[in-house]
Write a protein that binds this DNA or RNA. Sequence first.
DNA 1: ATAATTAGTTAACTAAAGTTAATTTCTTCT
DNA 2: AGAAGAAATTAACTTTAGTTAACTAATTAT
Lengths: 190, 190
Amino acid sequence: MEKVLFEFIEKYMVLTEEEKEAILDMQVFKYYKKGDVLLKEGQYSLDSYFVLQGCIRSYYLIDGEEKTTAFFTEMETCVPLCSKNNEPSEFNVDCLENSILVIANPDTEKKLFTEFPRFANMCRILSEELLVKVQFNLDSFKTHTPEQRYLHMLEQRPDLIQRAPQHQIASFLGITPQSLSRIRKRLAST
Amino acid sequence: MEKVLFEFIEKYMVLTEEEKEAILDMQVFKYYKKGDVLLKEGQYSLDSYFVLQGCIRSYYLIDGEEKTTAFFTEMETCVPLCSKNNEPSEFNVDCLENSILVIANPDTEKKLFTEFPRFANMCRILSEELLVKVQFNLDSFKTHTPEQRYLHMLEQRPDLIQRAPQHQIASFLGITPQSLSRIRKRLAST
DNA sequence: ATAATTAGTTAACTAAAGTTAATTTCTTCT
DNA sequence: AGAAGAAATTAACTTTAGTTAACTAATTAT
């Protein structure tokens, strides 16, 4: 796992041996089982989740129904709203698969950033990149129909189609499972 | 305008006189007229737009139709995708009103950050906050109907309802102008 | 001031998504 | 292996959004 993490980081900055050791000393890798819950609605938490391996999802409980709104797979980061506004979480996060994560929070960041300020800079750039990606997702969601969104997902995230159950994909696409089933049928028949 | 900007910044860090002067020396305030275009589809640009006063919007041209996807008003920041991925812009940005902006880009940032590293830290925190807000908007969009989205906008952004023309609000809500007109009628009759 | 253009509304119709419920298929648990 | 539970599909029906087009404000330009 070190190799995966270091390769990811080195897309942003070349690491010194000292930095690598500092990261390993922090014992950042956390192992979770499929189904493990990372964050519960109502809970206060300052953690963010970087996925090294596996898949996690965020979901809301609305009228007793699970509404999955996001999946996070390898090299993707889940930053919950509650970690930035100091309010109880409005959503849940759990593991879709056995997963290896790096969990960041103000404590671990402070430790790392004071010793190695370059990491703070990397995190700034990372979070700006993430910001524009999410904004683009939102724009894209607004300007496309459910069918187009599904086709887009087939093209851009074929892995997710395999990894996530269909009712979660449906709500990720902003529709009901029945509706996704119909869309798939419609597409298959043409 | 200085006062507005400094008050905004001071929610994140107390400024020294020296820092304030450095900002003013950079002549950061840019004045635009209603209708002025800040970014055109296809253009390469590294600029981000922080709105001190006024309103700007991002919109896509799809089948000859303008699709407005976002509005940015006082103390909000528009970070275009193209500014982070070095590709031609997929959308346009223009001014809905006469506006006063602070425009940031790697050059101005570098100047400021090397002299005052604290600003880099503020920008990291800002962009993380922005990230979770946009992610929450996306989640909220997915889990609500057009009517709920409109009601939510009436409640949370009544100013925008006043400031933006209705066909732009419609596409911001992910629907057609006709549909928004119907929703308004439906709501008025109950 | 008036014409031209653009924005907003309304209506009729079509297409697609939501809802409810039944059925089939697939997992999971003992 | 078999039962129980969950997930996916299908169907009938309802509701809402998209589409096309006509019409009525409201703006903008000359």
